[in-house]
Design a protein around this nucleic acid. Structure first.
Lengths: 170, 170
DNA sequence: CCCTTATGTTAACAACGTGAACATACCGGG
DNA sequence: CCCGGTATGTTCACGTTGTTAACATAAGGG
């Protein structure tokens, strides 16, 4: 029952590809994920991924969906006051994942139903925790904007600044 | 004095390349700007750009700097209440420019002094208009986050939503 | 047992960023 | 006025990427 049987077929290539892509994403950011490098990591030919994903975007969408599930589970059910800092810390700790999940790919999530469903589920927790829909959107917008500004170097990514900005006087 | 003399030398290739890149940026977003296509538009060989820019990133940095100057001039000197909506409307009207200016390129702006200076100048206006530095950062974070969420399709880009979220009750 | 289907491979193509070597135009000093 | 250096553009080349088409092999059910 060795897990590394060397057969023509891989066993679970799909998962292996997603894992490899994940590694690249965390290491080098969004642009560092190439299909060929992913295949290389999985020990497979450059075009093998096309048996499991329609194209590169589909692979990334599946990966984003996986992360949305995890992200939603980590955030769900908490008080609103904790969600802001948690959201920001996630973005700063895992920039690649954050940019993938909330980046331009999200716009095309209608082409990737799994992504659409996963992101909707994750974000439902946010609405549930806020006193009003508008308050939820304002809180979301604030932390989301600060996350981007810090990731892009427009603001320093300091913990003190985070807590100060997220706890307005009054 | 015809402006389109066909000589071996172009006349002002640098500006022509920036203009071409700008067109591509506005049409197809960040990823649609390729050095080769830019050169094609300027009617020049694929490697001609290297006489004016160290590499692709340098071209994009110069373009971003140009837009920061324009952006800063358009925003500067206004009351704070107007700046939020103006910022958001700019992002929605010109997603390519917005993403380029505030994207990952900004992180490397130390390698591109012109960019660093232009962005600093543009953002000084923001700090000047706010009652306190923290208030400036919160306002900036909010509009910046809403801009990204709308651009990425997480929120509908409706004018009504914008004015509602930017004018909290009280 | 064989045949269908799932899965992986090889070969190929066009597009990209970029470097090296070469060509041509321009411009200032003799 | 010419001539040589420098700025600017070209050609050729290389390695990388996403993707398609044609082929090969393994797996599993009638």
């Amino acid at each position: 029952m060795s897990t590394s049987e060397k057969s023509y077929h891989h066993g679970d290539l799909r998962a292996a590809l997603l894992d490899a892509a994940d590694t690249l994403l965390d290491q080098g950011g969004d642009g560092a994920v190439s299909l060929r490098e992913v295949a290389r990591m999985a020990g497979v030919s450059p075009t093998a991924a096309y048996r499991h994903f329609a194209d590169k975007e589909a692979l990334l969408a599946a990966l984003a969906a996986r992360h949305f599930a995890q992200f939603g589970a980590a955030l769900g059910g908490r008080p609103l006051a904790e969600m802001g800092p948690a959201y920001l810390r996630f973005a700063l700790a895992r920039p690649g994942r954050f940019r993938l999940m909330f980046g331009p790919l999200l716009q095309r999530s209608r082409q990737h139903p799994a992504l659409a469903q996963a992101s909707d589920a994750a974000l439902a927790g946010l609405y549930a925790a806020a006193p009003s829909p508008d308050a939820a959107l304002r809180a979301w917008g604030l932390v989301h904007g600060l996350a981007h500004l810090m990731l892009d170097g427009a603001l320093p990514a300091e913990e003190g600044l985070i807590t100060r900005l997220l706890n307005p006087p009054g």
